[in-house]
Simulated scan of single mutants.
Amino acid sequence: MTESDAGTVWRAPKPLRIFAIGAIVLFALLIAQVAMVWGFYATIGILLVLGVLFQVYWQLLRPRLVASDSGVDVVSDWHPVHLDWKEISRVETGNKGLTIIRADGSAVQSKVPHIAKPNADNSPTEQERVADYLTRRAAWARKSAGPKPRYEA
């Protein structure tokens, strides 16, 4: 989670992102080496590895959730979704991430923040804190009573 003028951004944990970037770079170097040695004969293998690298990017590096003054941006599936705060009815936690329920009853799935093991001291997980913050912020946008809720990491 990072906070800036653009809003609060949740992504995959930093160690996981660093590992994924390292794996992509390593495999890209291996693909280059194989292409130089085997040339056209390695095309199928290279395409398969490129497919794996695309999946690593798509599943680990691309997903994010951004909460800003204009609303919530969810980048998880093929099409990024922008939700205005007034559209959000509630946010639920689950094994696949957060489910944001719109006022019309439709749902948008966010892969981040990932499900975490429950804390030993029974304090809320990051996923539960984010769901609570997004729900409170959406309610504040509909009524604008009191100070604007802030996310407490």
Results as ranks from 00 to 15, higher is better:
Met1Ile: 04
Thr2Phe: 06
Thr2Val: 05
Ser4Tyr: 01
Asp5Cys: 00
Asp5Trp: 01
Ala6Leu: 02
Gly7Tyr: 09
Gly7Leu: 05
Thr8Asp: 08
Thr8Phe: 09
Val9Pro: 01
Trp10Ile: 05
Arg11Met: 09
Ala12Leu: 11
Pro13Val: 05
Pro15Gly: 04
Leu16Ser: 05
Arg17Pro: 03
Gly22Gln: 03
Ile24Cys: 03
Val25Asp: 06
Leu26Thr: 15
Phe27Gly: 00
Ala28Glu: 02
Ala28Ile: 02
Ala28Asn: 01
Leu29Ile: 07
Leu30Ala: 11
Ile31His: 00
Ala32Tyr: 03
Ala32Met: 10
Val34Phe: 14
Trp38Glu: 04
Gly39Trp: 03
Thr43Tyr: 00
Thr43Phe: 02
Ile44Leu: 08
Leu48Glu: 01
Gly51Phe: 00
Val52Cys: 06
Leu53Thr: 00
Val56His: 10
Tyr57His: 08
Tyr57Met: 03
Trp58Gln: 04
Gln59Lys: 06
Arg62Ile: 04
Leu65Asn: 11
Ser68Gln: 07
Ser68Glu: 07
Asp69Pro: 02
Ser70His: 09
Val72His: 09
Val72Ser: 08
Asp73Glu: 11
Asp73Met: 13
Val74Asn: 02
Val74Pro: 02
Asp77Phe: 14
Asp77Val: 11
Asp77Cys: 07
Trp78Cys: 06
His82Ser: 14
Leu83Phe: 10
Lys86Thr: 15
Glu87Gln: 15
Ile88Glu: 07
Val91Asn: 04
Glu92Ser: 10
Gly94Arg: 04
Asn95Met: 12
Thr99Cys: 08
Ile101Val: 15
Ile101Gly: 00
Ala103Gly: 01
Asp104Cys: 12
Gly105Trp: 11
Ser106Ile: 04
Ser106Trp: 02
Ser106Lys: 15
Gln109His: 13
Ser110Lys: 05
Lys111Trp: 15
Val112Tyr: 12
Val112Leu: 12
Ile115Asp: 11
Lys117Asn: 08
Pro118Asn: 03
Asp121Lys: 11
Asn122Val: 03
Asn122Glu: 14
Asn122Trp: 12
Pro124Asp: 13
Thr125Gly: 15
Thr125Asn: 13
Glu126Arg: 15
Glu128Cys: 07
Val130Trp: 06
Val130Tyr: 07
Val130Lys: 12
Ala131Gln: 06
Asp132Gly: 08
Tyr133Gln: 07
Thr135Phe: 07
Arg136His: 14
Arg136Ala: 12
Ala139Met: 13
Pro149Gln: 07
Arg150Ala: 11
